[in-house]
Design a protein around this nucleic acid. Structure first.
Lengths: 146, 146
DNA sequence: ATAAATCTTGACAAAAAAAGTAAAGATTTT
DNA sequence: AAAATCTTTACTTTTTTTGTCAAGATTTAT
């Protein structure tokens, strides 16, 4: 009942990228440094996020990563789904029974419970976007660090 | 983001025990047969549930397991907690930094998110009890409560 | 054009967690 | 006393997670 480190790292990387909006693409090396995640592992994670259409990349010198959509269009659910797989809390414990598709009402009762839990989580995660978590842009009086 | 098989099996075993209310204790062998879970594994699971005070056991011939409380006093959260451990969706990724307890606002934003998710799940699971999932005893009409 | 920076991809390995098995022992009822 | 049943611990296997490594492809700046 927990989020994998891949999921957590992915969210942090995305926040880093989102934060950088307006300063052009941010490269893996910087994300790695700021978030203390190894470059190799980051490559894997970012590749998944890219394949899923959440970010896009620019190659070559001065390249890096950018959000593929506005940060308020990217939900946490999207991210978790890409990095942790679908939310599936539990599937039927007897998917392969020939005689009937389900062993009986007791099992069904629990299956239904897990399904409802899944929907609850899903609902929560699809209502929060990257924008909700993003720091305000460092425009005003406060000195900004790069 | 899923329930372990131990948790799922445990819930099913408990439903089996709850179902049997009024017919005295039910033994491991029967639960094992009905739910298709190995006796050895069940022993492990039931022992945890007993230690946690959710069920009690009667030894010797004609012995078996009983709920330790009314089925409406046992929440799914109780069960999951015993079998899957506490819900903890995610902890701080940098618990050991000496300088400060947190690396910065970006990390905090995600930590807070995971904490809120945790509370959401927790809330859901503590509102459902075994009684809500239990089948009606065979004599009565088939009423479905919410 | 070329070199350097950067993303891309696939294979592999170490570590941790989950799932399950086995067996000897203790207790109680009949 | 025997049989049924729960108790407990140790161990093994399997799966998942968490990464590392390395060669390759692409693009930009000069």
């Amino acid at each position: 009942m927990s989020i994998s480190t891949r999921g957590r790292y992915g969210l942090r990387a995305l926040l880093e990228i989102a934060q950088n909006y307006g300063s052009g693409p941010i490269n893996i090396r910087d994300i790695s440094k700021n978030q203390k995640i190894s470059m190799s592992y980051l490559e894997q994670i970012l590749h998944r996020l890219k394949k899923a259409g959440l970010i896009r990349s620019i190659r070559g010198a001065k390249g890096g990563y950018l959000l593929a959509k506005e940060s308020n269009q990217i939900t946490i659910k999207d991210i978790v789904k890409v990095l942790d797989g679908p939310i599936g809390v539990a599937y039927c414990d007897f998917p392969n029974l020939r005689e009937k598709s389900c062993i009986g009402p007791k099992v069904c009762a629990s299956s239904i419970l897990w399904k409802r839990l899944e929907l609850t989580i899903d609902d929560f995660l699809s209502k929060v976007t990257l924008a909700d978590l993003k720091e305000e842009p460092p425009s005003s009086k406060k000195g900004m660090r790069k």
